[in-house]
Nucleic acid binder design. Structure first.
Length: 794
DNA sequence: ATAACGTATCGCCAC
DNA sequence: GATACGTTAT
């Protein structure tokens, strides 16, 4: 092949690749083609980072490093070259054979690891990979840190003295376990709360400090020494229960790598490319994990935004992103600053707010999108009015043609959701609340999970303790304490003691109850091990044997039916899991999935309802209209952050995340007074609202929306005026029950406050309300909800 | 010894 | 406002 030919082929190849990824901007393409070596992508909100990640993987799988390579594998025959040129001209997709010819060092998909933050993001990644790469896309390892580590640990669990089906403890289990440890060591919760102990231990694990080392470091510090003892006890109990907590998953994987060169070597060779999303939210241990894995290949790509780092409270360190270039010499850095999501107004507001932070890399997002509406900053009287205000806007805009699913309400803390929810229910606005009490956090569901865990692994003491007397089996605290003590004394696990209760003098009295219980668990364990029964059937059998549902029904609990429904709902969850995983399905597998589930994972954007969640959960999502209630000092920023500059910066980043979720419209709402933790507080509007340039805002106050009440004065309303106006304000918006009596039908002539006179064309009942189609004399035909359109019949 | 009842406490964000 | 604990009734 002549030099000339080679050059021509390389040139053509570049053209083809650029064409293949032509839907992206040049910066994004740069990231897609920068395949080898460390790469840091600083991706602002809405700059298309998921697209970049997915396409980068697709490029690696299909073309390898062809874009930057000067190598030419073989001279393609002229027929193929002609065909490629034709495709370039017409924009037709490239034949697969052409990809093969052009590719240099393409990478099999299973050699690529992509780590995301939530399962939802991982699934989205998998879906987009499948649509881009077909079946090959499914072979990419795309999951969260925790599931990736769990997967690796199960393979080599024996090296660490765990079984391959070890249990994963979530924070509730950890909490229970820590309380047991405190009890065992006689450490008063008032001196060292289980919370502070757990958080200390979590930090220690993040720094890769084990219990013994921690105790050594404690020295003369009495408190640290006690925590060290708790730490040691906690870990030894976890080990005995064949269980790991969330932090252990990362910690133990790193230990596994450090102590077993062959294992590390295997994974270093196996994964040629590693990609990490949301890198700003990784902690030290996660950084170490990624660093170890990529040491050989050096092909590490991390994507993140220092301005969106909102998990420092749980150990994420912004250092990881700020010092990436130092840690990985010759790292390539690419900034994505074009935003495709929001209007100019929203983006300017976000930029203005985040500019007040000191500690950041600094970047300014821009967009080609239109300026859009001004940001609505509204001051309402109290939290009920705030909720009513939001409900009112939603109804107005739905009447004007928006869908309920266009709206999101993002709040700082879950406890804010109640008032909002009540207002929505009252106005029959379909809505879903994410977070708060998750399905899998409900007591009865946790009980069922505990049963399944114990059936799977009877040495799981924490779960065993949870269910031993639930439903009531007349096994009391004293008996349990005695049994636990015996177990510790003879070095066997609790289950063994229960099973052989007759042999132990102190347990004589309750021996039968204990052995009955143990036998029941063991029977089901045998059935599980036989492997002939489906998980759903095993679960049904378990319900029958334990009599849990009957006990619930007899309990007289007013929510009994709900709880029974939840217990039964778990059957569907098991069936679904089995369907999705086929032969791979296993009880430990199911339990792992459940343990690593985040509530955002259940978010399904397809149903037409308003979604409510915390600002944290909303990271990575976008909505046409976003409401941010509680935009007040003391709520957001939260009271605990106000006197701490670094926490204020984190809150401000959260504000930045929240604001940039909005595509078209943003509403900042605050309340002049609010009931919080049982007492009424009067909060100033949030400093973050003050940081937005005035010209971007459209400020309104509650009394301006309605007919101004004569006693309402524009500045600092007294408590009296406030309550009076608040009442009339609330009443004006509260029409659901009263007004629905007024029925409209086709042919009626009506008057609307803003649209004027019109005639009802059709009336379709919808839930508690009626959807009206009205032809207005002036403003054309509109669809309105009868109860909220404030129509007058003529 | 166990269960039911009443009282004190404490609140965010999440894998 | 729920949940964890301590107290009392069986």
């Amino acid at each position: 092949m002549t030099d000339w030919n080679q050059e021509k082929i390389i040139g053509l190849r570049k053209k083809v690749l650029e064409h293949e990824f032509s839907r992206m901007n040049s910066r994004q393409r740069e990231a897609v083609f920068a395949v080898n070596g460390p790469l840091l992508v600083l991706a602002g909100a809405g700059s298309g980072k998921t697209t970049v990640l997915v396409n980068r993987i697709a490029n690696i799988v299909r073309f390898g490093d062809a874009y930057h390579s000067s190598e030419v594998k073989q001279e393609p025959d002229t027929g193929l070259l002609d065909e490629i040129s034709r495709c370039l001209e017409t924009g037709a997709p490239l034949p697969e054979s052409a990809c093969d010819t052009l590719a240099i060092n393409p990478c099999p998909p299973w050699k690529i690891m992509s780590i995301t933050f939530t399962n939802k993001a991982a699934n989205e990644m998998k879906e987009r990979l499948s649509s881009l790469l077909g079946k090959r896309g499914e072979e990419v390892w795309a999951s969260t840190f925790h599931s990736t580590c769990a997967r690796m640990l199960r393979r080599s669990a024996d090296r660490l003295g765990f079984s391959s089906h070890f249990a994963i403890y979530d924070s509730d289990d950890s909490k229970r376990l820590m309380k047991e440890c405190q009890k065992a060591l006689g450490i008063d919760d008032k001196k060292i709360s289980y919370k502070s102990a757990l958080s200390e231990i979590s930090h220690a694990k993040d720094a890769m400090i084990g219990p013994e080392e921690y105790l050594r470091d404690a020295g003369n510090d009495e408190r640290a020494a006690k925590i060290g003892l708790l730490y040691r006890q906690y870990q030894s109990r976890l080990k005995n229960a064949d269980a790991m907590d969330f932090d252990d998953l990362i910690f133990n994987t790193i230990r596994l790598f450090q102590k077993n060169a062959d294992v590390l070597d295997y994974y270093q060779n196996r994964f040629r490319y590693i990609l990490v999303d949301e890198y700003q939210d990784t902690n030290r241990a996660q950084y170490l994990f990624v660093k170890l894995l990529s040491e050989k290949s050096r092909n590490l790509c991390v994507v993140g935004d220092d301005d969106q780092s909102i998990y420092q409270f749980r150990g994420a360190t912004i250092e990881n992103i700020l010092s990436f270039e130092k840690t990985f010499p010759n790292a390539h850095v690419i900034r994505l600053e074009q935003n495709y999501r929001s209007t100019k107004t929203i983006l300017s507001a976000a930029n203005a707010v985040i500019a007040n932070n000191e500690n950041r890399k600094g970047k300014t997002l821009w967009t080609e999108n239109p300026a859009g509406k001004k940001i609505d900053a509204h001051v309402s009287f109290n939290e009920q009015d705030e909720a009513a205000y939001i409900a009112g806007i939603i109804l107005d805009e739905v009447s004007a043609g928006r869908h309920f699913s266009d709206f999101a309400v993002l709040y700082r803390m879950n406890s804010q959701s109640n008032t909002l929810e009540r207002a929505f229910t009252k106005s029959s606005i379909p809505h879903r609340v994410l977070g708060g009490l998750r399905f899998f956090d409900r007591k009865e569901v946790r009980d069922m999970i505990a049963y399944l865990s114990v059936i799977c692994n009877p040495s799981d003491e924490i779960r065993l303790l949870r269910i031993i007397n639930c439903p009531k089996r007349a096994i009391g605290d004293k008996t349990v304490a005695a049994a636990t003590q015996i177990a510790a004394g003879i070095g066997e696990n609790l289950f063994y003691v229960l099973k052989h209760a007759e042999e132990f003098q102190p347990l004589q009295r309750s021996a039968k109850k204990l052995t009955d219980f143990a036998n029941m668990i063991q029977d089901m364990n045998s059935i599980l091990l036989e492997g002939k029964t489906s998980l759903a059937d095993l679960y049904r059998l378990m319900l029958k044997k334990t009599g849990y549902v009957e006990a619930l029904a007899a309990s007289g609990d007013e929510n009994a039916q709900d709880r029974i429904d939840n217990v039964n709902e778990l059957t569907s969850s098991l069936i679904q899991y089995e369907e999705e995983n086929g032969d791979e399905a296993s009880l430990p597998g199911y339990l792992e999935e459940v343990a690593l589930l985040a509530d955002i994972d259940n978010y399904d954007s397809s149903s037409d309802s308003v979604v409510m969640m915390t600002m944290h959960s909303a990271k990575g999502l976008e909505f046409p209209v976003v409401f941010l209630p509680g935009f007040e000092e003391g709520i957001f920023p939260g009271i605990q952050a106000i006197f701490n500059p670094s926490q204020i910066e984190e809150e401000r980043r959260l504000a930045y995340v929240a604001i940039t979720r909005a595509k078209e419209e943003l509403h900042l709402v605050c309340a002049g007074s609010r009931m919080i933790f049982g007492s009424t507080q009067r909060n100033q509007p949030s400093r973050f609202a003050e940081e937005i340039p005035k010209e971007l805002l459209e400020v309104s106050r509650a009394y301006e929306r309605k007919t101004p009440a004569p006693e309402a004065r524009p500045s600092a309303p007294s408590y009296r005026t406030h309550s009076a106006v608040s009442h009339s304000f609330g009443a004006a918006w509260k029409p659901a029950a009263e007004k629905s009596a007024e029925k409209f039908r086709a042919g009626d002539t009506v008057i609307h406050k803003t649209f004027g006179r019109g005639m009802v064309l059709s009336a379709v009942p919808m839930g508690n309300d009626t959807l009206l189609e009205i032809a207005f004399d002036q403003s054309g035909t509109k669809k309105l909800m009868a109860n909220y359109a404030r129509l007058q019949k003529k």
